[in-house]
Design a binder for these strands. Sequence first.
DNA 1: ACAATACGTAGGATATTTCCTACCTGTCAA
DNA 2: TTGACAGGTAGGAAATATCCTACGTATTGT
Lengths: 111, 111
Amino acid sequence: MSASDQAPATADDVFAALASPVRRDLLRLLLGGTRTVNELAAHFDMSRPSVSEHLRVLRDARLVSERKAGRERHYSLEPRPLLELRDWLNPYEKFWRQRMRALRDALEEEP
Amino acid sequence: MSASDQAPATADDVFAALASPVRRDLLRLLLGGTRTVNELAAHFDMSRPSVSEHLRVLRDARLVSERKAGRERHYSLEPRPLLELRDWLNPYEKFWRQRMRALRDALEEEP
DNA sequence: ACAATACGTAGGATATTTCCTACCTGTCAA
DNA sequence: TTGACAGGTAGGAAATATCCTACGTATTGT
């Protein structure tokens, strides 16, 4: 399963990709716009090849895309999997609101 | 760093906890309400002690809480870290809306 | 043409995760 | 009291993750 597959990324891929703080930092950097590998690697106390590997994990999870431009590779943020994460989160937000409502009701009953 | 600490869970703990599909299934089961360890373990093709370890990871991330009741332990969902995850997601949703807006504007320009 | 640059891949060392079985403590019920 | 049950912990095997250096390939500039 490499980044060149057209198959959609699984939730597993996305959650696993987000588990690394390095990869979350990479996503945050890409919020500022497209970046080359060297530009990204400059932010880390880590070898460039290791950053390349993290980028591959992010690519496999469809969280970033790459565009070849001469000898550079321009990486861009692809927010769609994060929107699916928001959908995953939705039932838990509902749960949260129910709990808040119950707490408020209990407080109103005994003032 | 055990679950008995009062220190708040880090984003790292939360993302790492969510990286396992078993632990995400545990959270989903707890959406239905409080469950004992045995009730939870019954849903998995895995030994009960292994489920216990997954529960510890979720506890350390403050994603679940436990309440002792006789010889049972009742586990409950604690949605607060997931709400922080939603906050983490926020800038990416803004990014997404910007991108959608740009696409829409481009389409209007060239109909 | 040739050196330098950008970046990926290979192979490997080490750390971490994930599962197991064995075992322990605390609680309940007969 | 004693046996059964709930569930955590210990120790270890196997798989995976994370980093490195060395190297290969494609592109650019001189």
